[in-house]
Design a protein around this nucleic acid. Sequence first.
RNA 1: GCGCCUAUAGCUCAACCGGAUAGAGCAACGGCCUUCUAAGCCGUAGGUUGCAGGUUCGAGUCCUGCUGGGCGCGCCA
Length: 565
Amino acid sequence: MKAFISEQLSQIINQLKASGQLPDDFQPRIQIDNTKDKAHGDLATNLALMAAKPAGKKPRELAEQVVSLLQADAGFMQQVSKMEIAGPGFINFFLSQGALTAVVGQVLSEGARFGQSDTGQGEKVQVEFVSANPTGPLHIGHGRGAAVGDCLCRLLQATGWDVTREFYYNDAGAQINNLALSVQARARGLGPEDPSWPEDGYRGDYIQEVARSYMAGDTVVADDQQVKGEADPENTDAIRRFAVAFLRREQDLDLKAFGVAFDVYFLESSLYSEGRVEAAVEQLIANGYTYEEGGALWLRTTDFGDDKDRVMRKTDGGYTYFVPDVAYHLNKWQRGFKKVINEQGADHHSTITRVRAGLQALKVDIPEGWPDYVLHQMVTVMRGGEEVKISKRAGSYVTLRDLIDEVGCDATRYFLAARAPTSQLTFDIDLARSQTNDNPVYYIQYAHARLCSVARQAEEKGYGWNAEAAQACLDQLNTDQEQAVLNLLARFPEVVATAARELEPHQIAQYLRDLAAAMHSWYNAHQFLVDDEAVRTARLALAAATRQVLANGLDLLGVSAPESM
RNA sequence: GCGCCUAUAGCUCAACCGGAUAGAGCAACGGCCUUCUAAGCCGUAGGUUGCAGGUUCGAGUCCUGCUGGGCGCGCCA
């Protein structure tokens, strides 16, 4: 509908240009807004405000002119019942009943596809998220990354992109050594309090479990590997392999319980074994962006906007973490991903400049702002009114698994995805696990369940209907509550498109709350299963359409849509 | 000191690339279950959008400066 009005308005602009009333070079961004207040109609445009100055007219005067031109168009007036000029010069559109109810038929025929679009045109996009080190269980911060990242993927799929979900698996480097040494210490019966406990060793209880399992000779089956514990506390290599496999299996199980599945697990170690790190380094040297100083090799990242140059190769010969990262992203580019989104915690934001600088220095025509980043802020966990500290060192923290077990997958996903990623998040465990009306996720699910229940009872009472019959009755949907629901249903495709474009899954959560609220109000104000067949059929059709959109929206969040509660 | 994020109702958060009277939930107060699920609905109250300037028809939104909070500023990842 917006597109339709927008098209009409741009024709009018052209008419005004042709008659010399607007300068030829006037190119406004035609803006059609959803009104906040029903008194302002269904849609509104600020066109007259934008064009008043170029036209040399008062906004309201110009608005009058636009309205009368629109009124002369019979086809247009079939969709719009009334226009009003309001405030400083807004034109308010009141949609005709036919235009308002058209969405019902559309939802019923498109079903699960309603809301989808083809913006991505089948282009490949890769989303990297979670990418936790295999040095411990996933915690709530990873959970936020998983929820946001997975919802982004769902949004991109819904808008026509060919999505690859990828987990960068950091299985090389110092942290893994540290992990192996920590498990080894436990295997030798040491604890964090012992003087010979490794410096910066991981102190968490889970290390003890890994050590116990290793010493028991257990076999760990992770998705692409199978490792048996050697039960030898002196074999550091065997411990390392076992510990990595063990923790990877744990993470896989956590993600599975969270409803998140990846298409690709990319191993950092493969970048070394396939020579990709070396190749990238050589390219950077050949391009002249490096220099040696103090026994280390430096990359001149300041050429690309960094505030200081960065060490690539340490004096001990090892590479700093961002070097394999550059090689990894070069590989993403070479795999043909023109669009790449990295979902990470904001505490790693300093890597962005470095990775982009490295990619520019490779001189392989990667665009300057590539790849995109979505950074989520920290999560604070509250329990019993007190903050729960997250610390791997201390070994006391809330794991993602704890949350899923305690509050459920649906509520956890909803809470972690329902807020803007840029906003710090307080996760109140007591609130999220409460089965009371404090909990917003149930509010939406309940709306869905109620509509399912209505449909079941309609069937039991023999109130059959079909989409074709319903089409003829839709003019019966004339209560305030029904008009509000219709408006919201019509907005859904636009909400999905905007959320996908801005990479903001929380817009879906917000929308679903609004739709659920409109539905509950409607449900309370009017009986659906009434004797009047036309009214009943129209309401059942709108109820079915609303149920469908609630289900489609919940699916974008990865939250279930129960048929009864 | 520098960079990124942020500041909106008592609390947790929205506000669609600048639009009309800044909205929800929770908490508070008052109503609604012989009627399709009360995990619900209706109503009341709650605000100088951190502060000070600027840009314009119009600013929570954009710009500048201040103040407070978070994160980062390693030859850690």
